[in-house]
């Protein structure tokens, strides 16, 4: 399967799971909304350009927004993490490109600890920014802080479960492809 096709399928799957499963199940508590759709942006191949990432992020967020009737809310958060992503990857991956020949971020490509840091930073940014925008509209500051912590926690739990249960096949970047 080509990279483009694979990512389109992934996007559809993540959006559908987010809209029809995670947003519909009765939540444990009103603070805890499980989010996983932005794993799509975390998993995008290294080869996507920075501007490409921004537009992909924007439309990912906007698709979810139109399902949830919050136009712009998730789009803004996704654009932010798409913008920050290349910097984090630059810090966390080895500079020597001959040793580094994986196609997309994964625990095996980046080692577990750098990958965990990468996911943690992006998750925190996504939730922090999104909930901050919600907080501007309505809510109290304490609510906002608690929600950032709890939703980040539950999202990390979901993401690492997905990583452990569905290990992606190793994809090497080769000269022929």
């Amino acid at each position: 399967m080509s990279d483009v096709l694979r990512n389109i399928v992934r996007l559809a799957a993540f959006i559908l799971i987010q809209v029809y499963v995670l947003n519909k199940v009765p939540h444990l508590h009103r603070f805890i909304t499980p989010y996983i759709y932005f794993l799509f942006i975390i998993w995008l191949p290294f080869s996507v350009t920075r501007i490409g990432l921004l537009f992909v992020g924007f439309f990912t967020g906007l698709i979810l927004d139109y399902f949830m009737m919050t136009p712009g809310l998730h789009a803004a958060a996704c654009v932010l993490i798409a913008f920050v992503r290349p910097f984090i990857i630059g810090i966390l991956t080895p500079k020597d490109s001959s040793e580094f020949n994986y196609r997309e971020p994964s625990p095996r490509a980046m080692q577990w600890t750098p990958y965990a840091v990468y996911v943690l930073v992006l998750t925190l940014l996504h939730h922090g920014y999104m909930l901050f925008l919600e907080f501007l509209d309505a809510g109290t500051f304490l609510d906002f802080i608690i929600r950032v912590i709890t939703t980040t926690g539950i999202s990390l739990l979901l993401i690492f479960t997905v990583e452990l249960v569905f290990p992606r096949q190793l994809k090497f970047r080769t000269n022929t492809a």
Partner: peptide
């Protein structure tokens, strides 16, 4: 894109 989303 940020300004666009926030405007939306």
């Amino acid at each position: 894109l940020q300004v666009l989303s926030l405007w939306f």
